[in-house]
Write a protein that binds this DNA or RNA. Structure first.
Lengths: 205, 205
DNA sequence: ATTTTGACCCATAAACCAAATTAGTCGAAA
DNA sequence: TTTCGACTAATTTGGTTTATGGGTCAAAAT
């Protein structure tokens, strides 16, 4: 389970953290483009050049911040999930946790909606890392379920495909929650959605 | 089942069709932005003004063309699907048909990849109509399955949610097939993916 | 009445340039 | 090892002009 999104969680450097928390506030308030390196530096009472001692580029700061957030959010979901035993319960719990967090923090990240499509390259790295992480996570979960006899014996290939498919599915649902304006209907049925994806909707037998 | 994406299939007007087929070729070759109304007019040997007798705007032409294509593609999938009896088989058949078509026509539509994010407003209407269509389609399919006793009795609300969730899931998988570069792995497992979404991956009972 | 057209209009895109910002570098200082 | 001020190079901004191309319209053609 040595699967994680961000290295910074170990808190390697206090200044690094300082930069990230300062940057986070500015990014969330003004977006990526309108936040200058000067702004970040001033915010934490340091010179702009200092930032370049810890990060190579502005993008790198943004990326580190985003990954840190996602990491926190995922750790949270995993922690909640691990209180369950059955895979179905774990999956449902994980999905519900992720999406409720997404919905409740929706406002906070709304600044990025516009920017996301102005420069998609910005989130490319982040997306890739997240995908890689999620796929490993989902594969592990399937293996856990198979071990418990709650999931049919699937081939390696099938597990891989399933993980990829469910990942993009969840992403699709996530974007709809984030961008769409019908979260209301969704948010009360997150558990149902998770179960439907995992267990299907057919009559058992 | 009076559920369709495009009215033009009835072939209301030959000139309208002419315009659409001419426009299609140009759009596919040069993209939306670089094809001018002049180009389209010249292509079919008419004056630019004529186009405005049949369509209000350039966007409307593009939209009509796209909807016509999608309509064809969906009619095809439905036709294939209807050869099956069991819902599971129908769903799988439908999904496989749609996605194989997508994969094989991928090259043709690659011009739009870039344009899609340059002006997302362009496909907004199309996307909305497609979503509406797909949700109705999926709901109908569920009702069919419930009638056959192959799908558990779901509430109206749940059917609605399921249709929305599966629609965005399929869209997610579709984009991955269209934009990503790992179709190879996917394309041989489309049936598996469809089954997994529909029937889940848990051991039955 | 329906369809087509050329001449026209005008919003927007492109091309250009000067000025200002700002990301990123570097050597020296702390 | 870490921080900083001064520098530079690239990008952005703002303002202007030109050109393109979407869209209108009244008249002509069918």
């Amino acid at each position: 389970m040595s699967n994680s999104l961000s290295e910074t969680s170990v808190g390697l450097d206090p200044v690094r953290k300082e930069i990230l928390t300062g940057a986070r506030e500015l990014f969330i308030h003004f977006g990526f483009k309108k936040t200058t390196m000067e702004d970040i530096a001033k915010k934490i009472g340091r010179s702009k050049s200092s930032l370049y001692y810890y990060f190579k580029t502005k993008e790198e700061i943004f990326e580190a911040m985003a990954l840190e957030d996602m990491d926190f959010q995922h750790r949270n979901a995993v922690e909640t999930m691990n209180r369950e035993e059955a895979v179905q319960d774990r999956f449902r719990s994980f999905v519900v946790s992720l999406f409720t967090h997404l919905i409740s923090n929706k406002q906070e990240y709304s600044v990025f909606k516009a920017e996301l499509m102005e420069n998609p390259f910005l989130i490319m790295n982040i997306t890739e890392k997240r995908n890689a992480y999620m796929e490993v996570f989902l594969k592990d979960l399937v293996l856990y379920g198979i071990r418990r006899g709650e999931i049919r014996e699937l081939s390696h290939e099938e597990i891989d495909i399933w993980a990829k498919a469910i990942n993009v599915s969840l992403k699709g649902i996530g974007s709809r929650l984030f961008l769409g304006n019908d979260q209301e209907k969704f948010k009360d049925h997150l558990g149902f959605i998770a179960d439907a994806l995992f267990m299907g909707i057919t009559t058992k037998i």
